[in-house]
Amino acid sequence: MEAVMSLLVGCFFAAGVYLMLSKAIIRILIGIVLFGNAVNLLIFTAGRITREAPPVIAPDMDRLTGIAANPLPQALILTAIVISFSFFAFLLVLALRTYQELGSDNTVQMRVAEPEGDTLPPLGY
């Protein structure tokens, strides 16, 4: 099971990097989401995939007596999901606002600092 998850993590990383190298803003955002999901799956896989009992201590005990699941990867993934969702929402609004201002989602056409129709500045003095 862990080998399959590792292959899935590798595919997510590869697809995320491929999409982030695109010129379209929406593809870049989808690549960032895939990259975040790959990191979440990587943490989940590193925390060992087991079918153990939940780490709940009985009221009459002072410690765990048997083997229990590790709650730390689950807490890290839950936190990472919330952070990645808020980051994606911010980037989506930023991309929408950029599209409204510039009229394009192509990063090559977003060269506001160097407009295409203007003449070049003087090269020598």
Rank of each mutant, 00 (worst) to 15 (best):
P59T: 13
L64H: 11
R63A: 06
N37C: 03
I77H: 02
V56T: 08
T79W: 13
A69M: 04
G66R: 15
L76K: 02
R48V: 14
V39F: 08
A80W: 08
A46H: 00
T65K: 14
A68W: 13
L34R: 02
G47T: 02
P59V: 08
G36M: 01
L64A: 06
V33K: 02
L41I: 15
L78Y: 07
G36R: 10
L41N: 01
L76E: 03
P54W: 02
I57G: 08
R48G: 13
L41M: 07
A75H: 05
M61Y: 05
F44P: 01
V33I: 08
E52A: 10
A69P: 10
M61V: 10
L64N: 12
V56S: 07
G47I: 00
G36F: 00
M61W: 05
A38G: 05
Q74N: 09
P55S: 09
E52M: 06
A75K: 06
R63Q: 09
L41C: 00
T45N: 10
A53S: 04
P55I: 13
L78Q: 05
A68T: 09
L34T: 02
T79K: 08
G36S: 05
T50K: 14
A53F: 15
F44C: 03
D60S: 15
T65M: 12
P54M: 06
R63G: 12
Q74H: 03
P55K: 04
G66D: 07
T45Y: 13
V39D: 00
R48E: 06
T45W: 15
I43Y: 06
A53Q: 06
L64S: 08
A38R: 10
I77F: 07
R51F: 07
D62W: 09
L78E: 08
V56Q: 14
D60A: 11
P59Y: 04
P71S: 01
T50V: 13
R63N: 10
G66P: 11
V39L: 03
R51P: 06
I49N: 08
I43V: 03
L78T: 15
F44A: 00
F44G: 01
L72H: 15
L42S: 08
G47N: 05
T50F: 03
T50M: 07
A58N: 14
G66W: 09
D62K: 11
I57E: 13
A58Q: 11
L41S: 04
Q74R: 02
G66T: 14
L41R: 00
L76Q: 01
D60T: 12
L64E: 13
I67T: 14
A80V: 01
G66M: 11
A75D: 07
A46N: 14
N70H: 09
I43L: 00
F35D: 01
A38W: 07
L34G: 00
I77C: 04
V56P: 06
F35Q: 01
I67P: 07
A69W: 05
I67G: 10
P71H: 11
I49T: 04
V39M: 03
A75S: 07
L64C: 09
